[in-house]
Design a protein around this nucleic acid. Structure first.
Lengths: 363, 363
DNA sequence: TTGAAAGCGTTACCAG
DNA sequence: CTGGTAACGCTTTCAA
């Protein structure tokens, strides 16, 4: 493992002494307890909902807390309990933009009744040292009780680091690191395998793949699924029919158009995301080709509220797996791990459902 | 102001006593100081970068920290200093999905060299009590040093609450609350006014508006800009030509199609977001109408990496204002406010630039 | 320039 | 069931 500075914060050694918050802080427990006429201990227990206080007492305390607007200081609680009351999630600066908010919506849904915050960190892409420093800081400084790692690489140093630090974490996606760890992933192999097989069965032979940036496990898995599907029919994929880029409407459009201009052109596209499917639609339409007839498309859909495959023209066939659901479940599992559940038990592979709509036709 | 429960967390009074983290925690300051052969005091000062320690000593301490992997416990620091080292941002559960990640990317960019975390809270839409409780909890419990409020309403109780609590905050958007507060907003009036004026000058008279959900200030401002622009030509807008929905491709498509089926149909659309412009494009294309000729479109663009107006067919005219920039600046301003800058000085209205591309033609 | 000791605001242990 | 007291791990006077 490479060495790196943990002190991302301390690059600038000369610092002025900062004053604490200058706004009116909350009432303290001691002060509040006096008003209620009980000891801080009892008040703390009453508010904490512990069984050893009389129900009547608890009611009185709760009422008073509401009345005076008392709320325990989170940082004191954290220090005293050793719990951070937060889980960290790390997003890449550029990658994952549009689905990230769906995932986080899921996280929030799961945490709604929990007294746990979401702490978001953003890594600078392609700077491993800094990325590792962020994870270090997050874990070792006690800011979070657990961490969610996105879009892992097959050999992911972040996972090795977290494993070494001993902080509870779960990987959204998969890697091949030898360290035992918790993960949840959709079946990215099937995300391409099943659409490709379907295309093959309908007679397609020239099938293109729009894939994500090289390096991530899910990209590798999807390529492998694609290759394996083609292999069942003795086809070796043409490298020019495979794209590796960040998912965007425009790159997909360019790629699709350049392919559709060729002779012979591909008759089917496996698209990695909704946006890229839109790009293919646009390219085909522009060239006077009809989706579902001249060109077939199946895309993976993370399910967004603002862009639904059913409403596309024609309705887009998809492998569907709501990112929001993943956010809920990943969070749930992480909480279990924090609670002590062995990570070896926490490994979930979610199947994807292939939903056929009108964007697919015979070759 | 309505009353509400601060104790969102305590709905369930009977709770088990939870144990603290069960993973190996970091080395403590005391322990680390012993290894270095200095007092905790000096070590703390050295790591904190304060001027009173000898440079040589500091170097020695820094080296040792790296070597032993020592990192101060964040919660102890927070308690001791009174600073939370985090700023909170609140997103609506459904709203703001796709642009939220851009905004947060901007926040992260600004905070990169700061030792400040981003704490994300998610509110349940249309439940004011719970929403206020979330803000209360965030502010009064000392979890954050400041808060960012999104998509305010003209009379926004959240602002009143934060104002009352005294926590530093900044509003991304505007409201009409009488409380003096910091805000940054784009000129939403111009977001519709300028496109509409442009349409009028090119001879358009039947202009449709795709607007956001009623209740938010930006929606009101945009409607007003639209109305004012039309008024300059003595036009009273047809209510059927105005849509108020969450921005999505599909709703915009439906709306546009239903209007384009009418006689006479609108010749121009002012769209509130990129996604809705796509919906209009699709509707027009489906009906055999040509964008930029039969139907003109100008949309507001928050600037996403995965969907660019230049690459649309034809290139889309936009009012442009990068959400990422807003994220950077809002965060920057909030830090200033936390640092003591008077809020009356912190009020920024950003102009939008109208960028004409080929989606606009004469009526 | 360094160190001892007193907080910071809670919770948790142990008596009563 | 309730209360005193010692942590929790660090920063910050105040002395030296």
């Amino acid at each position: 493992m490479k060495s790196f500075s943990i002190f991302v914060d301390l690059k600038n050694p000369q610092r002025r002494r900062m004053q604490g918050a200058n706004w009116q802080k909350n009432m303290k427990l001691k002060e509040f307890a006096e008003k209620v006429g009980l000891s801080p201990t009892t008040v703390s227990r009453a508010l904490g909902g512990y069984p050893e206080v009389r129900e009547e007492t608890r009611q009185r305390v709760m009422q008073a807390a509401l009345k005076y607007g008392y709320l325990p200081n989170a940082n004191a609680v954290r220090l005293a309990t050793g719990r951070a009351g937060a889980i960290g999630v790390v997003m890449g600066r550029s990658g994952g933009g549009h689905f990230f908010s769906e995932f986080m919506g899921g996280m929030a849904t799961r945490l709604e009744r929990e007294e746990t915050d979401i702490l978001v960190s953003v890594t600078v892409d392609n700077n491993l040292d800094e990325e590792l420093a962020i994870f270090s800081r997050l874990a070792a400084s006690g800011r979070v009780d657990g961490i969610i790692v996105h879009s892992p690489r097959p050999e992911d140093e972040r996972i090795a680091l977290l494993n070494r630090l001993g902080v509870p974490f779960i990987v959204h996606g998969r890697s091949k690191t030898p360290f035992e760890h918790a993960w949840l992933d959709i079946d990215n192999h099937d995300v391409t395998y099943r659409p490709t097989i379907h295309f093959l069965e309908r007679g397609h032979r020239r099938i293109a793949l729009i894939n994500g940036p090289v390096g991530r496990t899910f990209v590798r898995d999807r390529e492998q699924g694609f290759r394996e599907a083609l292999a069942t029919h003795g086809i070796t994929p043409d490298p020019r029919f495979m794209m590796n880029e960040h998912f965007s409407e425009e790159t997909a459009f360019r790629f699709a158009r350049s392919l559709l201009e060729q002779t012979p052109r591909p008759t089917a596209f496996v698209a990695g995301a909704m946006m890229t499917a839109q790009g293919v639609y646009r390219a085909a339409t522009q060239m006077g080709l009809t989706i579902g007839k001249d060109v077939s498309v199946i895309a993976h859909d993370d399910v967004f509220p603002y862009l639904t495959p059913e409403s596309m023209m024609p309705p887009l066939s998809t492998t569907r797996s709501p990112m929001r659901m993943a956010g809920i479940r990943v969070t749930d599992l992480l909480l279990q791990i924090i609670g002590g559940r062995p990570v070896r038990e926490v490994q979930e592979l979610w199947p994807v459902e292939l939903i056929l709509r009108e964007s697919v036709g015979p070759a």
